[in-house]
Design a protein around this nucleic acid. Structure first.
Lengths: 225, 225, 225, 225
DNA sequence: TATGAATGAGTCTTCATTCAT
DNA sequence: CATGAATGAAGACTCATTCAT
C-alpha cells in the first residue's frame, strides 16, 4: 500500500498539506484540552503542547483562543446538521416505522456525544461567544426542530397537533438526555441499549399520545389508594 | 473595653450568629457572581465586594474559592432534596392523579431553576470539584430517582415494569428540560404554561405506555407513505 | 532624632501613608525606566522591580502601563506650568530687564530638563496617548506661549508686533534647545553658562529686532566678497 | 531553463542590480512603517509586506531589525550632509545676503523634514542604537556646525565672535524648530511662509547682534513699568 | 536565493491567596 | 476577628528570528 502510494506521489507530499493538517491537529488538541479542563482552564499553551506545535504556530492559524472555540463549535453544528439530514434521508428512503426512526435518531445522537460528551456544553455554556455564533447555535436548534417536525408529519400515528413544538421538545429531550448518558453512563442501572430503548419509547408514547384538548385536568379517577 | 462595648450594644446576638450571617451573605453574593460571570471569571474579590465584606473576611470563612462553590452546591442538593420530599409528601396526602402529580413536579423544578438558571450548571460543569462532591451530586440524583420510583408505585396507571429506571429517566428529563427552559425560554414557540403541560404529557404518556417486551421491532404497519 | 520622632508618633505611622508613597515610588521608578529604555522597552515588570514592589502592587495603583505614562506626563505639565507662573510672578515683581528675564527663563527650563532630559520626549512622542492627553499637551504649550506673550508686552524694547507668534517661537525654541543641551551637553564646545547666555541673546536679539514689514527681501548690499 | 528565461527577459539587469533594488525597497518600506507605527511597533513582517518581499528575504539583506534602522539613519545623515553642502555651494556661488542665505537654509531643512517628519526622531530617540551610530549622529551635527560657521565667516554683518558656537546654535535651532513645525504645524497660528520668515529673522538678529562682552548684566534701563 | 511556516522568549495583565496591622 | 495592601504564579498573545524546502 505504501509502495503504491509512493508511486502516485513520487517525490514529496503536496505543498499545502501541512497547513490543513496543522489546523486539524490544533483543533483536535483543543477539543481534548477543553474537554478535560473546561474553557477557562484550557490554556492556549496547553493546546499548543498537546498539538505538538509551538504557541506561536497556534496563533498563526487562530487569532485568539475564542476563535478556536468558535471553530470547534462551528464544526459541531455542521456535523450535527449533516447527521440529522442523513437520518431524515435514510428514514424517508427506508420507510421504517416511527419507532425505528426514533430509535435511529437517538442512537445517532448518542454516538455523536460519546466521543467528547462535555465538549459541546463547554463550548456553548462556558465560552464567551460572539453574538453571531450564539445566534447560529440557536438557529441550528430551531432548524433541527423544524426538520424533525417535517419528518414527523409523514407518520400517521403521530397524533400531536403542534408539530413544531413537538419537534422542538423531541430535539431538546434527545439532545439533553443523550448528552447526559454519554457523560455519566450509569451502566449498572441501564445499559446503553436499554437507555436508547427507553428514550425512544418515551418519545413514541409522547408523539402518539391522544390528548384531551384542555390539559391540567386531573385525569379522573386515578389516585393513589 | 469589651465590657464597655457590651453596654453600648447590649442585645448583641449570641456568639455564633454573626458568623452564620456572614457565611450566608458570602454565599448569596457568590451565587449572584457565579451566575453572572461564570466560575472562572467570578473572582473572590467580586464576591467579597458584593457581600459587603473584605477579601480577608471571606477567607476567614472559606479556605478557598472552590470551597465556596462546594458549599453552594451542597446547599443546592439539600434544597432540591427537600423540595422533592415536600412534593412526595404532598402528593401522598392529597391523592391527586398521576397527571396532576407530574404537573406539580415539573412546575416545582421549573421554579427552582428560574431564580438562577445558570448557577447549577456552572457549579456542576464549570467548577473543578473534588471527586467526593461529584459523587454526592450523582448520588443525590439516584436517590431522587428512587424516591420518584417509590411514588410512581402508588399509581395504578403506571404500566412501566422497571420503576427504578423509569424514575431515573423521569428525573433526568425533568431536570434537563426545566433547566433548559429556565435558561433560554423561547416564549414565542411555547409559553411557560404550555411547556409544563407538554413535558407532563410526555412523562405521563411514557409512564402509562403499555409496551411490547422486545423492542426495536418496527411497530408493524406504520410507515411513511 | 529617632527618639523624638517616636514620641511624636508613639505607635504606628499614619495609616494612609503607604498608598501615597507607593504611587510616588512607582512613578519615580517609571520615570527612570522610561528614561533609560524608552516607552516600549520600559516594561511594567522592570518598573515594579525598580520601585521595589511586586507587579501586582503596581497594577493595584495603575490600571495599565499607559496610565503610568499619562500620570507622569500630567505631572510634567503641571510642574512646567507652575514653574512658568513662578517665573512670570518673579519677573513682574522684581522688574528686571528683558535680558535678565530671558536669562532666568532659560535657566529655569534647563534645570527642569536636566533631571531626566529624555523623559518628556519619550512620553510625548513615543507613547500612544489617549487623545485627551494629547490635546492637554498642545494646550499647555499654547497657554505657555500666551503667558510669555503677556509678559513680553511689559517690556518696551520688545519691537515684535505679533506677540503671540513671538511667544510661541520663544517657548518652542527654549523648550527644544534646553532639552537638547540637557540631553547631550557638549561642554567642550559651550559651557552651561555660555549656552544659557547665547540662547538668551538670541531671544533678546529676536524680540528687540526692528524689522522691515515685508520680509524675504535680501537685506541689501550684504554679500560675501 | 535559465536560457529560456533569459530569452524572454533579455535585458535582465546585471547581477548586483536586484540586490540593490531590493535593499532600497526594504528601506523605503521601513521608512514608511517606522514613520507610521514607531520603532517598537514597526514589525519586520510589516516592513517585508510593504516592501513586497518575504520576511526571509528581508533577513537575507539585513541581519536584524536594528540594522535596518541604522541603515536608514545613515542615509539620513548622508542626505542632510549633501543638502548642506549644496546649500553652501549655492550660497557662495550666488552671493546672496545673510538674510537670504538663512531663509534658504531654513526652507531646505523644513523641506527635508516635511516628507517624514517623525522618522528622524524615531530613529534617533526611539531606537536602541549601537554607540558607534550615536556618535556618528553627534559628529554629523558638529560637522554641520563647522560648515555653517565657515559660511558665516563670509558675511561681514555677522558680529558674533565665536563662530563655531554660533554655528552650532544655528544648526540646532533650525534642526529642532523645523522638525517641530513639520511634525505639528499650527497653521492657524503661523503659516509655513511666516514660520520660515520668523525663524530666519531670529537667526539674523542673533548673528548680527552686537553684544557687550560680559553677559547677565541687566541691559540697563529696561524694566517693566 | 527566495520563501514563509515555525519558534519561543518576553510582554502586559489578572486574580487567588497571605499576612501585618 | 476584620481588613485590604501586597504578592507572584500563570495566562493570552506578539514578534524578531531561523531554517527546511
Amino acid at each position: 500500500m505504501t509502495a503504491r502510494k509512493q508511486r502516485l506521489e513520487p517525490i514529496k507530499p503536496p505543498v499545502q498539506r501541512r497547513s490543513k493538517a496543522t489546523v486539524d491537529e490544533i483543533l483536535a488538541a483543543a477539543a481534548q484540552v477543553f474537554e478535560t479542563h473546561g474553557y477557562a482552564a484550557g490554556t492556549t499553551n496547553r493546546i499548543a503542547d498537546r498539538a505538538g506545535v509551538s504557541i506561536g504556530t497556534l496563533y498563526q492559524y487562530f487569532p485568539s483562543k475564542e476563535a478556536i472555540a468558535v471553530a470547534l463549535l462551528e464544526r459541531h453544528i455542521i456535523d450535527t446538521d449533516r447527521r440529522l439530514h442523513e437520518w431524515v434521508g435514510h428514514m424517508v428512503a427506508e420507510r421504517h416505522g416511527l419507532r425505528a426512526a426514533l430509535h435511529d435518531y437517538v442512537t445517532g445522537m448518542l454516538e455523536m456525544h460519546s466521543g467528547r460528551p462535555r465538549l459541546q456544553h463547554i463550548l456553548i455554556e462556558e465560552t464567551p461567544l460572539p453574538e453571531r455564533v450564539h445566534k447560529a447555535v440557536l438557529e441550528a436548534e430551531q432548524t433541527a426542530a423544524k426538520t424533525v417536525a417535517g419528518l414527523l408529519r409523514l407518520y400517521p400515528e403521530v397524533r400531536h397537533t403542534q408539530l413544531e413544538q413537538a419537534g422542538s421538545l423531541v430535539v431538546q429531550t434527545v439532545e439533553s438526555l443523550t448528552h447526559r448518558f454519554a457523560a455519566h453512563p450509569d451502566e449498572q442501572l441501564m445499559s446503553r441499549e436499554r437507555f436508547i430503548n427507553e428514550l425512544a419509547t418515551m418519545l413514541e408514547a409522547y408523539l402518539s399520545y391522544s390528548r384531551p384538548h384542555k390539559s391540567r385536568q386531573p385525569s379522573p379517577g386515578s389516585c393513589p389508594p
